[in-house]
């Protein structure tokens, strides 16, 4: 099973996401911002990318856009972790090529359900 890339500038959020997913048997790699995530994703093909929207050094939307333009990530699920409940960020993310989103705050269960949903 390919690995999951969790991108968030908040280390507590990253820890929570990584711990939840690895407890469920997924293999998770963490990145603190979009630029690091993009570099990692170019080295290894991840099966799913979970990205926070607001981050320094390349935000989540730019990350999604950059990933979607890579041939390896043409069909890969890319999820945004967003606190914006308004439609603008979601639409912006969709336009950049995001598969979907998970609205913060979410609990470990919601996270796991969403991840299982996209990974089938």
């Amino acid at each position: 099973m390919s690995r999951i890339l969790a991108v968030d500038d908040s280390s507590s959020m990253r820890q929570m996401v990584a711990f939840t997913l690895s407890s469920a048997g997924f293999d998770v790699v963490e990145a603190p911002d979009g630029a690091v995530a993009l570099a990692l994703a170019q080295k290894e093909k991840f099966g799913l990318v979970l990205a926070d929207v607001n981050m320094p050094n390349m935000d989540g939307i730019s990350l999604v856009r950059a990933l979607r333009s890579l041939p390896e990530y043409k069909f890969t699920p890319l999820l945004m972790l967003t606190t914006e409940s308004g439609p603008e960020k979601k639409q912006e993310g969709k336009a950049a090529g995001a598969t979907g989103w998970l609205v913060k705050p979410f609990n470990p269960e919601q996270l796991l359900n969403t991840v299982k949903r996209v990974l089938g």
């Binding site: 500038d9 908040s10 507590s12 959020m13 929570m16 607001n54 981050m55 320094p56 606190t83 913060k104 705050p105 979410f106 609990n107």
Partner: peptide, 23 residues
């Protein structure tokens, strides 16, 4: 932007980890 991001992260984390007043 940086200040906004910091506030935004604290809010997101606080809501996630159950600190409603802080959020």
């Amino acid at each position: 932007n940086a200040v906004f991001r910091a506030a935004h992260s604290i809010k997101g984390g606080a809501a996630t980890f159950g600190f409603a007043a802080i959020a």
